[in-house]
Design a protein around this nucleic acid. Structure first.
Length: 421
RNA sequence: GUGGGUGUGGCCUAGCGGUUAGGGCGCCAGGUUGUGGCCCUGGAGAUCGUGGGUUCAAAUCCCAUCACCCACCCCA
């Protein structure tokens, strides 16, 4: 190991990884476009309060997973751990409440969580997300889920399991957590240490504990769905109605909860069927209370985020990840004294004609350069030495199985290559 | 923060007390005074993660440490 390496949990993206990332990003942006979501990019660094106010001071994100630092001016800054709060900040700051509602936005970029890395979890992670802001209706929930569902369909991940739930409003959850507390209190002794801790910090999390999954107190716990108000229940039923109309399969799972406090009503997750470990590929929910936490007007909103690394992981597991970018069209092969300069000028002309051209390596033997050209998967080698430079021509050599090498005047090289396709 | 596993050239790896630390891939060069892919030959490239200890002798055994991986917590 060299003594300098990338920070823990933050990975270099190498050229050989580029094809699959480009693939995912292209499809994500395409799907966003299909739904008329506009691209928004917010800073990677924000005033720490943007997140501290919204994710909940007590949440793990605020307590131990956020990169917080003081800048040179003494301001408390944070590397963004998630997208929704920052986008909400931008929505308020730019008065987007005065635009036609709802405002539909999508984003893609890196986020940061000071977590212990493991498979599918990183300290710098990329997320693609979409937010539909200013629409309280169940149709907006369905639209966001449909967008996310379409993304996975387009990517070739049609069998991700959609689990949905409603966690009601803040009042609902207050009544429910009180009921849970009463339910679990007599069983505390027999629950795992983690669950005992959760009993104090985030009691909802006991429900999806891995250790206590089979515990009778967990399996027999009351369901939040029984605590929903009439309005919440109607909203949830409407969402399910839309999903049914769209033919999107899902399961209602009352154990789906959210780590962040600002969620309300509909929440969901997409998971691979062979789920294990850090498996959630994407998750979303309604966050009607968030804007007010940031000092803005009460504004209903719903959105989702999906982890690019986790998408790539799933594509690779299924061998659906494209391995290579499109190969280069032309590899230049300059020889001799006059070849290199003439080859550079010819390469410029070819690029101007829209061809991708890899520069050669003057000084290397013809054999070595042709080997390299062949390895690069270039469609053509263009050989240019002293004789060619003198005569104003180049040798155009197809690198495929067959095809004849031609002597072509400079001005006709681009044409000759484009015609022979 | 907790637990487990693994560290040998760029990558994969053999060696598990005494070897000039071996091989494969890749890279560079040559085999053709200017013609690739296959093949052949040669070359460069390793403080055996780091520090300490045991021993006549350590990549190999012990301890510590660091890094990475996996899992828990939490989350995308």
């Amino acid at each position: 190991m060299p003594d300098l390496q990338s920070p823990r949990g933050m990975e270099d993206l190498l050229p050989e990884d580029a094809a699959v990332w480009r693939h995912v990003r292209d499809i994500a942006e395409h799907v966003a476009r299909l739904f008329d979501y506009g691209y928004i990019s917010t800073p990677v660094v924000e005033d720490a309060r943007v997140f501290l106010r919204t994710v909940g001071e007590e949440s793990d994100i605020a307590q131990k997973e956020m990169y917080v630092f003081e800048d040179r001016g003494g301001d408390r800054m944070a590397l963004r751990p998630e997208g929704t709060a920052a986008i909400s900040r931008a929505y308020i700051e730019h008065g987007m409440g005065s635009r036609p509602q709802p405002v539909r936005l999508f984003y893609i970029g890196p986020f940061f969580r000071y977590d212990r890395p493991q498979a599918g979890r990183y300290r710098q992670l990329w997320q693609f997300g979409a937010e539909c802001i200013g629409d309280a209706s169940a149709a907006a929930d369905a639209e966001i889920i449909e967008l996310q569902h379409t993304l996975y369909q387009e990517l070739g991940l049609p069998d991700l399991l959609l689990r949905i739930n409603s966690i009601g409003t803040a009042e609902t959850r207050a009544r429910y957590t009180e009921a849970l507390r009463e339910h679990f209190r007599p069983h505390l002794e027999s629950l795992s240490k983690d669950s005992q801790r959760r009993f104090e910090t985030n009691i909802l999390r006991i429900l999806d504990s891995k250790e206590d999954a089979g515990h009778p107190a967990v399996t027999g716990a009351p369901s939040i769905l029984d605590f929903l108000t009439e309005e919440d229940a109607a909203h949830f039923a409407a969402v399910q109605g839309y999903l049914g109309a769209l033919g999107i399969s899902y399961v209602v799972d009352p154990r789906v909860v959210r780590g962040l406090d600002y969620y309300a009503r509909t929440v969901w997750e997409f998971e691979p069927p062979d789920a294990a470990g850090q498996s959630t590929v994407g998750a979303g929910g309604r966050y009607d209370g968030l804007m007010e936490l940031l000092g803005g007007p009460a504004t209903p909103a719903v959105g989702f985020a999906t982890g690019i690394e986790r998408i790539v992981l799933n594509l690779r597991r299924r061998e659906l990840a494209p391995e290579e970018e499109a190969p280069v069209d032309v590899a230049m092969v300059p020889l001799g004294e006059a070849g290199p300069a003439a080859a550079m000028r010819l390469a410029r002309a070819l690029r101007a004609a829209g061809l991708a051209v890899r520069a050669g390596t003057p000084g290397r033997s013809l054999r070595a350069q042709l080997r390299a050209a062949s390895n690069s998967n270039a469609a053509f080698a263009v050989i240019l030495g002293d004789d060619e430079a003198r005569d104003g021509v180049a040798q155009v050599k197809p690198l495929g199985a067959d095809g004849e090498q031609l002597t072509v005047p400079f001005g006709s090289v681009a044409d000759a290559i484009q015609r022979s396709w």
